[in-house]
Every structure is written in C-alpha cells, then in structure tokens.
Amino acid sequence: MYNCIIFDIDGTLLDTEIAVLSSLQKLVFEELNENLSFDELRFALGIPGEVTLNKHIK
C-alpha cells in the first residue's frame, strides 16, 4: 500500500523534455508530414498540446 503519490508535472524530479519533444516530433510528422527539429519544437514546452498545434499550423 502506498502512503503518498508524487506528481511531477513540470520536470522538477524527472527531465521529460526529450520525451515530450520526441512525441511531439512524431505527432507532427504523422499528422502534417513535416520533420521538425527539437529546436523548432522547443516553443511547445510548458503549454497545452492544443495551443502548440494551433501555433504551428497557423
């Protein structure tokens, strides 16, 4: 039985930047057929996915 649960939603305990950028990169390729670098996708860190896709598409 667990006494507590820890949520790490901002990368404090685990650095999830690479995982987030990799999944976004794959999604953009699958949906838009565009190969974007991590540098081109870094703007998306810290904002909701829907906002990210709307910024890229426009």
Rank of each mutant, 00 (worst) to 15 (best):
E31K: 15
N3Q: 09
H56W: 07
E50C: 00
N3Y: 06
L24W: 05
C4A: 12
E31D: 03
L24F: 05
G46M: 08
G46L: 15
N54F: 06
R42A: 09
E34R: 14
V51A: 12
T16V: 10
L21H: 08
D15C: 07
A44W: 03
P48H: 02
G11E: 01
L36A: 05
T12L: 08
V20T: 10
V20N: 04
E31V: 05
K58A: 01
L14M: 13
I47V: 06
V28E: 04
I9Y: 12
V28G: 01
G11C: 02
L32P: 00
L27S: 04
Q25H: 04
K26I: 10
H56K: 09
L13S: 10
L27E: 14
L32E: 08
L45S: 00
I5P: 03
D8Y: 07
S37K: 15
N3I: 13
L24R: 12
T52V: 13
E40K: 13
P48N: 10
I6T: 07
N3D: 10
E31F: 01
K58D: 03
K55R: 15
M1E: 04
I47C: 04
V28D: 02
G11M: 03
L14T: 06
I6C: 11
T12A: 05
I6H: 08
V20S: 02
Q25S: 13
E40N: 09
S23P: 00
I5F: 14
L45N: 00
L14Q: 01
V28C: 02
T12F: 04
N35E: 14
T16Q: 04
L45K: 08
L27T: 09
S37T: 15
I57E: 01
E17K: 13
L41Y: 01
L36I: 05
L24N: 04
Q25C: 09
T52N: 03
V28R: 02
I5A: 14
N54V: 08
Y2I: 13
E30H: 09
S23H: 06
Q25Y: 04
D10H: 05
S23N: 08
D10S: 11
E34L: 15
G49Y: 11
V28M: 02
K55F: 10
I57W: 00
G46D: 06
N3C: 11
